[in-house]
Structure formats: structure tokens, C-alpha cells
Design a protein around this nucleic acid. Structure first.
Lengths: 327, 327
DNA sequence: TTGAAAGCGATACCAG
DNA sequence: CTGGTATCGCTTTCAA
């Protein structure tokens, strides 16, 4: 790697001048600038970020904390975050923490050791651990005063329930996401509001995780417990797909005598047969907006909207019946 | 952040002694060591990686280049890589390059600017661009002398074909992955060897991408071109699922009059109905082994096996017919 | 407008 | 065994 010193020598100026020319800071004569530019080009020079970061006490790196990169919802978020931070000249240090508090702390330490500029987290850990690092929370957001980007879970919950209500449900079961995940509770509230207003009965099935590995077993338990359920509001698309498969295996016809709606709209939800009806969260946008929000905080030091809520959309596919036109 | 200087002051020794104590390098008296440890604990000190990295010209970061993090095969690889490098004290700088040469170059530059220790890449770019960075290639491996971890594509190709051959195929079509991806050609060779030895006819359908977004359109074209195909060897699971859905939409019954085998065994392949029969690549292990290989190179400077080939396994699910027992 | 020099925080050489 | 100091590559005073 060539250094600023070599550039200075070739250009016949001091390293200070090179630095100023490169950063457009302070005065640099047109003549000096040209000489520097020529030298930079000739030597194919690009600055060492580590040295810059040491002096500035701030790197061009942003830490990304994810609960489970194998869950297809998060790669999309990651992609959005990556594009967002790249746009502003930052790169990502990856931290897949698997809902493990210790691992999260380890990563936060590593981030800090690397003079990270900020953290973007989709993990519902203790924000106290972030210490002085600026951070933005994604998706799983506590309802306090943090900077955050999330989607409209309450409306999403209502939309899911309305979709079912409008389709002659006989026996409704709501599959509720893990208690620790704040958005689960909000979605449930949305579900319940609609169901109560429609005076429809429903039952609850509490899950303990969003983990891929547990989906199939949970789906089995679910249908074991509610063998006659005909309308399911699932906790997310992964679990909806598992339930759908289990129902199909048991000979239920979808959507004729078994209908189901998921949540998230993963890339695969439209690729299965029958296509999964679901509430689409704008995962990529959540990531992208989160990145923008953090970069704004980092650069401007303040920000107009510290909480960004993104709309969800209903994707009707084949896993629910035709709408009851009499409604 | 507290620095080594503050630790030295509190411990009543020099920074040099603190450094030696922390790194177990050089001589440190028991007494001095204790004082340092006490001070470290009291101040909750941990070393700044940026400073260390500047001096050593090598950070504890490893760059990870991925073609498409939204493709469910790669998050698994990423998880394996992450666990593998974590184990050895490294962290990951993420680079999702989307099969874009320029983006790959940009990332390589960023990696270099951050004194990256090495690169793990699942992208088939030009290894010349890696310059002096040690690197390990995953999965999509050119057949030259690079360090690499990949799975046994030839055997995988044979297994896929054998699976079809043993199940009374009527009209076979092989969906061939993108020409630029080396493993596609190897798998095809494996397919063809088996098919030729069985004296079975087959047709080829060339795809141009592994991208999720193009799967559905490709699946449509595929069935448009081969409306009567009854046995498909797909290029990967994503495309297999898309074809499966398209076939189901067209009223084909799976597996009675349409059978299909995929490649990869993504997490979702077993969660769809009917379950997708496929050749499982050990994605997590590929990542993990790749990480180990790179760390060995970095630490030992050499390595016994520079190319690691992992076995693939056949996962029979419901998307193919019962085996013809007369074979 | 320029350059010399003092950091940033850690490592490692070398003299004591 | 220990501590002073040069060094890594870059930024930023400050004096000229």
C-alpha cells in the first residue's frame, strides 16, 4: 500500500498539503492540488482508513446486529442496510447474535474496539450496552425514546384479521409470536381489535420463537391442539408455511377448508403453492431507512424524525378463500 | 474508552510493561502482571483494535464477499463463516456484491483500506484483484490452484440424475445453471454421465442466473418450452420451487405426473408441500471450513490441504415418485 | 498557502 | 525484567 508520504514526495509537497488536498480542508493552491492529484493517480493511492480512524476516533464502519441471518427476513434487511450505508460511504461489520445476550455484548465490545461509527440493531437487547455508540433500532423496537425504524404492526395485525373476517372463518386460531418480541404483542392487539368488533370467537396459540428450526415441530403441535381450525393468523411466514405444509399433509384442502395468512412476505411466500397470503413488511426499506437515519445522526448530529414508521401491505394470494362479497 | 496509558499510570508501570502483560510477550514479573491485571479490571480496559491494527498492518477483520445475500443459500454460508472466524478471534466485514464486478472491486479496496487480514469469497470474480490479501474461495471455485472449499458437484450431478433415472422418467429436462458459474458445468457433466450410461434421452434448458427475482419468469418460460416434461433436474432449489409452483398451477400432479429434483437443500426446501427432493450442499460447513482454512493460512502461514471438498447428500422428499424397485 | 510537528493507541526494539 | 521511544499512516493545529 502506498502512503501519503510517498504521494507527498512525488508531488513535491508536504504530507499536510496532501491531506488537505485529499480532504478539501484548509487552503491548497490550485498548483499544489494538481500536483497532488497527479501523484495520487500515478501511485494509485488511496488512504488507509485505519490510520484515519485512529486519529479521528471514529471509523467508517457501522456495526449490524441481527438475531438470525438464516431467517429470510433478515438478509433482506441486511441488504437494505448495506445499500443504505454504502451510499453514505460506510461499510458493515456483521454481528449475527442469535438472540444470545452474551454474543451481543461480545460484538458490542468488538464494535467499540474498532472505533465503530454507529450500530444498527434488529435485536431486542438492552440498549444500555450500547454505551456511547450512536444506534438505530430496526423492527423489534421497544416503545421508548430510541431512534428506530419499524413497520406499522398494529395496522398489520388489523389487516390480517380483517382478511380472515371477510372470508367466512369457522374456527379461528391466532398464532402469537414470542412474548419477548414487542411487535408480536402489537400485532396481536390489532388482530383482537378487529375480531372483537366483528364478534368473532378465536383461540390463541403462543409460540416461543421465530426460529426456522422450530417451525415444523411447532406446526405439528399447533394442528395437534387445534385439529379443526379452519382459519389461521400465523406469527410469521416461516411458521405459516410450516403450518400450511402440516395441514396439507393431514389432507386439508387450502383454501377450501383451511385458510391461513402469514406475516412478513418473505421472498419465498409467493413461490410456494398455494401462494401464501400475508402482510408484507418492507424489509429492505426498513434496513435502508435505518441506515439513512443513522447516517443522518452521525453527520448532522441531530435528526428531524427519530422514529420512522413504514406502512405494511396486504398480499392476497391463494392461501385464503375468495372474499365474501356479501360483507 | 480507556487506554493503555491510563492502565499504566494506575498500575504504576510503563505502557510497555502493560502491553507485554496483555500479550504475554517478553518478560513480565509476577508482581507487575498482578498490578496490571488489577488496573485492567478496575478500568474495564480492553485494547483498541484500530491502534493495534495500524502498527501491525493487519486487523482482526476478515472480508466476506457474497454474490447475493437474499439467496437463502448464502446466509447459511455466512453463518458458517461467521462462527468459524469468531472461533479464531476474527470478525467479518460484509460485502454483498450482487455479481457486480465494480462493486466487488470497491469492496476489495475498502477491505484493503481497513488492513483486512484476509478475504473469504463466494463470488467468482477475478482473483487478481485480491492483490496481496490472503483469500479463500467458497463454492463457486475456478479449477486452478487457489485455496478453496467446495462441495462435490460432480457426484451431486450424478446423484440427481440417478434419482431421476430410478424413477421411470418419460421426458427429462435438465435446467442448467448460468454458464459463468463453474459448478453448473460440473453438475451438468455428472448429470450427463449417468443419463448417457442409462441410454436415456434428455433436453437442456440454459438459465442465465441464480437470482431469486428471475426464478418465476424462468419457470414460466421453462414450462412453456417443455409443456410435457415429466422429470426435471433443476439448477437449484429456488428455481426448482418456482418450476414446481408453475407446474402445479398448470394442473400437473406432483410427483405422479411431474417429478423434480433441486440442488442445495435450502432451509425451505423441506418446508414446502410437496417437500422438494434435492441434493444437499453443506452450506454451513462450507462456510465454517472456509473460515478455518483462511485462519490456518493466516496463523500458520501454510496449510496441509489447500482445497477442501465436502460431500453432498441426497434428500428424498415428496417431489419425486417412489423408486422403481425393479432396477 | 505551506510545512513541521504533535498527536491517535498500541507494539516492539533496545538500552539499562 | 523494565521503561523510553520510534513507529504505523493520517489529520490538524500553529507558526512561518
Amino acid at each position: 500500500m502506498t502512503t501519503i508520504k510517498e504521494v507527498a514526495k512525488l508531488a513535491g509537497v508536504s504530507v499536510a498539503t496532501v491531506s488537505r488536498a485529499l480532504n478539501n480542508s484548509g487552503y491548497v493552491s490550485e498548483d499544489a492540488r494538481k500536483k497532488v492529484e497527479a501523484a495520487v493517480k500515478e501511485l494509485n493511492f488511496y488512504p488507509n482508513e485505519v490510520a484515519r480512524s485512529l486519529y479521528q476516533k471514529k471509523s467508517k464502519l457501522i456495526g449490524l446486529l441481527l438475531p438470525d441471518i438464516a431467517n429470510p427476513f433478515f438478509p433482506l434487511i441486511a441488504k437494505g442496510v448495506e445499500d443504505g450505508v454504502n451510499q453514505r460511504g460506510y461499510s458493515l461489520l456483521l454481528g449475527n447474535v442469535e438472540e444470545d445476550i452474551e454474543k451481543e455484548k461480545d460484538y458490542l465490545k468488538i464494535f467499540s474496539q474498532n472505533n465503530i461509527a454507529g450500530v444498527i440493531s434488529a435485536v431486542q437487547g438492552n440498549t444500555k450496552d450500547f454505551q456511547n455508540m450512536p444506534f438505530v433500532l430496526l423492527d423489534r423496537v421497544k416503545s421508548d425514546h430510541d431512534f428506530a425504524v419499524h413497520s406499522d404492526d398494529y395496522t398489520g395485525g388489523m389487516m390480517a384479521a380483517e382478511t380472515i373476517v371477510a372470508r367466512k372463518p369457522k374456527e379461528i386460531v391466532i398464532m402469537v409470536g414470542p412474548k419477548e418480541v414487542p411487535s408480536s404483542a402489537v400485532r396481536l392487539a390489532g388482530n383482537q381489535k378487529v375480531l372483537k368488533e366483528s364478534h368473532l370467537d378465536y383461540q390463541l396459540f403462543q409460540t416461543t420463537s421465530f426460529k426456522l428450526e422450530e417451525a415444523e415441530e411447532t406446526a405439528e403441535q399447533f394442528l395437534e391442539k387445534f385439529p379443526d381450525v379452519d382459519s389461521v393468523i400465523a406469527s410469521n411466514d416461516v411458521y405459516a408455511m410450516a403450518v400450511m405444509k402440516e395441514a396439507l399433509k393431514r389432507g386439508r384442502r387450502i383454501p377450501e377448508d383451511f385458510q391461513i395468512i402469514g406475516y412478513d412476505d418473505m421472498p419465498f411466500s409467493r413461490m410456494v403453492y398455494p401462494g401464501l397470503t400475508t402482510i408484507a413488511q418492507p424489509a429492505y426499506e426498513i434496513g435502508y431507512k435505518g441506515a439513512e437515519l443513522l447516517c443522518d445522526i452521525l453527520e448532522k448530529g441531530f435528526v428531524e424524525n427519530s422514529r420512522i414508521q413504514l406502512p405494511v401491505t396486504l398480499k392476497i394470494r391463494e392461501s385464503v378463500r375468495k372474499k365474501d362479497e356479501n360483507e
